[in-house]
Amino acid sequence: MKKVLLLLADGFEAVEASVFTDVLGWNKWEGDGSTEVVTVGLREKLTCTWNFTVVPEKTIDEILLEEYDALAIPGGFEEAGFYDDAFSEPFLNVIRYFHEKQKPIASICVASLTLGKSGILEGRNATTYNHPTSIRKEQLKNFGANVKDERIVRDGHIITSSNPGTAFDVAFVLLEMLTSKENVNHVKDHMGFV
């Protein structure tokens, strides 16, 4: 079984987290059965953007990182306090661990800024929220990333994306990294994507 750590910051977007639980959950029941998602946060109760409340299965201090095979991080809103957790050292240290071990790291939208803040995107290709009115691409560039104007950027074991609309695609890329293209197509078929 491949365990995926779904790392949640207060203020995360629920839809960006749910794609990981759904795609990897569908794989568990309808695909090759090899994936399990564990939701983890800094605190016992999290409030999403727009006040949806979530209780993660575990807190960071209750887990052993070596038990996990991949990391997934949804983005969130500054106005909802996302960066308070996402830029904290305990959160960033989880990212650094997965990078050091070269395990898959999948981020959606502004979650790439957490990767940048952790230092793992220095000199790497990445993207982030790309609306023309947003300053996020400039922020990512300031973290040393080579910012690409693409929907999804994969650089080795790291996946970044440009907006919430890419969420399902990111989850499928992560599933392919953990299993196979044939298995992803099987899961997509069952979920009605093909």
Rank of each mutant, 00 (worst) to 15 (best):
V184Y: 14
E182V: 12
T166Y: 10
N163T: 12
S162V: 09
T160W: 15
M177F: 07
L140C: 03
G156L: 00
N130Q: 12
G144I: 02
M177Y: 07
Y129T: 12
V147H: 03
F172G: 00
F172L: 10
F168D: 01
R151E: 13
N130C: 10
Q139G: 11
P164Y: 04
V187M: 05
N163C: 12
P164K: 04
V187T: 13
L174V: 01
K148N: 00
H190K: 13
T160V: 03
K181G: 10
D189R: 02
D155P: 02
I135A: 12
L175I: 11
R136T: 15
K188T: 08
E176D: 14
V147R: 04
V147Y: 04
V153D: 06
K137A: 10
E150C: 03
V153M: 03
V147E: 10
N183V: 09
E176G: 05
S180A: 10
N146D: 04
R136S: 14
V184P: 07
R151A: 12
T179E: 11
D149G: 05
T179C: 13
D149R: 07
Y129K: 06
M177T: 13
I152N: 03
R136G: 02
L175D: 08
G192M: 00
I135P: 15
N163L: 08
Q139V: 11
I159G: 09
K141H: 14
V187A: 08
P164L: 05
M191Q: 01
T179M: 07
M191H: 03
R154E: 08
D155C: 03
F172C: 00
H190Q: 13
I159Y: 05
H131T: 09
R154M: 09
M191F: 01
H190N: 06
N142R: 15
R151P: 04
N130I: 03
V170F: 07
G192Y: 00
V173P: 01
T160I: 02
N142P: 09
Y129I: 13
A171R: 04
K141R: 13
P132C: 05
G192C: 01
T166N: 02
T179R: 11
I158G: 08
D189Q: 03
L174Q: 06
K188F: 01
H157E: 12
N130H: 06
V153L: 08
E182K: 12
D149I: 05
H157W: 11
G192I: 01
N142C: 13
I135Q: 11
A167Y: 11
A171D: 08
S161E: 05
S134T: 07
L174K: 03
N183A: 09
M191T: 05
V184F: 01
S161R: 07
T160M: 09
T160N: 06
K148Q: 12
P164R: 05
R154C: 00
V184Q: 06
V173Q: 09
G192A: 00
V187F: 02
L140P: 11
K181Y: 05
S162H: 04
A171W: 03
P132D: 05
H157P: 02
V184M: 04
N183M: 13
I135R: 15
E150T: 00
L174N: 11
N183D: 12
G192S: 02
H157G: 06
L174A: 07
K141Q: 02
S134C: 09
N185K: 07
G144E: 11
N185D: 09
L178K: 12
F168E: 02
N163G: 15
